Simulated scan of single mutants.
Amino acid sequence: MLIEFYQPMQARLTLRILVVAIAFSFSLQELLAQSEKRLFDSNEVLELDMSISLKKLRVETNDSTFMTQDISVNEEGTWETYPFEIRTRGNFRLKNCYYPPTRIRMAKDDAKGSIFQGTRKLKLVLPCAKGKNSGNYVGKEYLAYKMYELVTDYYFRTRLVKMKLTNLDDKKGEQEELLGFVIEDDDDVAQRFDAEISEKKIPPNIMEDTATVIHDFYQMMIGNTDWSGLYQHNQKVMIVGQKTIYPLAYDFDMCGLVNPPYAQVNSAVPISKVTERLYRGFCRDESLFQYVRQHFLDKESELMGLIDQYQDLYTSADLKAMKSFVSEFFVMLKSDKLFKDRIVSSCRNLDGSYSF
């Protein structure tokens, strides 16, 4: 009887120890996962160092072809060098800028245990031109991404970088220090929402109405016409739950808020410069327009405060000009007449034409 009693007790103790061990293992894994810092967990400027031939980058890469490139990263005071792949991307800036816009990616095994784990694919934005003030425009575009985070839940995460770049084509071999930022990959955004990115052209009128109108108001606020909901130009489309569709905006460099020397107005719109505003959203029920109007008015002080918060990224003249430019948008929102004339009565019809 004693033996019979002891054996079940021993089995119960063994089972209990096993359960505790499993629970401890999961808790330890969770603790380790929480302690591992990821790229977008910090707002601190990320320091990078890269030596590259810009000529080779342009000639040997394209939308589907990468080349290998080591990039050194300062992680909490320690420099680590990682093997990345890099390629050119984009159209206008690729043709017209000294520093081409790029994509970088890292193999899964190389990213393991680093801040790039889970964010192995990124867009890298650097200044367009060489010059003392070229970084100001990067700073202002970064601001546009951060302001967008204040008005919507559906956005690309970004992080500022300070890039020490040596162009191997330069005979002097001088190292330049450039302000830039990295942008989260499409698939990583979708993973955050347990969603997928659609490659199909989806009419804006069937996208989630509130998020879409918020997007359209924001594009008007920053004076951006370099986008299209109809053709998904500078806009990705994310599908959540197989039927709820959200717009994801990116590439704000051509907007009036940034106002770079190379800025051009979309040829399909009836304005002549990027610092003019035009509502490019489609017509919706006026009650929705009024809801989003109030949403932006509630965010006014935070949006204006963000311009001040990042003032080290641009000149005092830029700061003053941007505050004045954004203030004009809120003057319009606060006027019933201007709001009706500029948005409610000027929205686009389903065929893309304007109501005015």
Rank of each mutant, 00 (worst) to 15 (best):
Q191T: 09
G131R: 15
K130H: 15
D188E: 11
D312A: 10
S42I: 03
E300G: 07
V258T: 11
Y279E: 00
N205E: 09
I115R: 06
A21F: 03
P127G: 11
M1I: 09
Y354I: 13
I17D: 01
L288F: 05
P203N: 04
M304V: 10
Q311C: 01
G131W: 13
R280Y: 01
E36G: 04
F193V: 05
F325G: 04
K130V: 14
L18Y: 00
A263I: 11
Y354N: 07
V59H: 11
E176K: 15
Y310L: 15
V189F: 07
S327Y: 07
Q309C: 01
N234D: 12
I307L: 06
V269N: 03
N91K: 12
L46N: 10
G131N: 15
R16N: 02
N205C: 02
V274S: 04
E302G: 06
C347H: 02
I214N: 05
Q69H: 06
S267D: 07
P261C: 13
Q117R: 02
K146N: 09
M254V: 05
V45H: 01
Y154M: 09
F116A: 07
N62W: 13
K172D: 15
S353R: 04
F282G: 00
F356V: 04
A144P: 05
T158M: 08
G241E: 14
E36V: 05
V138H: 08
S287A: 14
T14K: 01
F26K: 00
R293E: 00
C128K: 12
R284T: 09
K334Y: 06
L18R: 00
F26Y: 03
A144S: 15
Q311W: 00
S51Y: 00
F116M: 10
F329P: 08
Q264T: 15
Q294Y: 14
L179H: 03
H295C: 08
D63N: 15
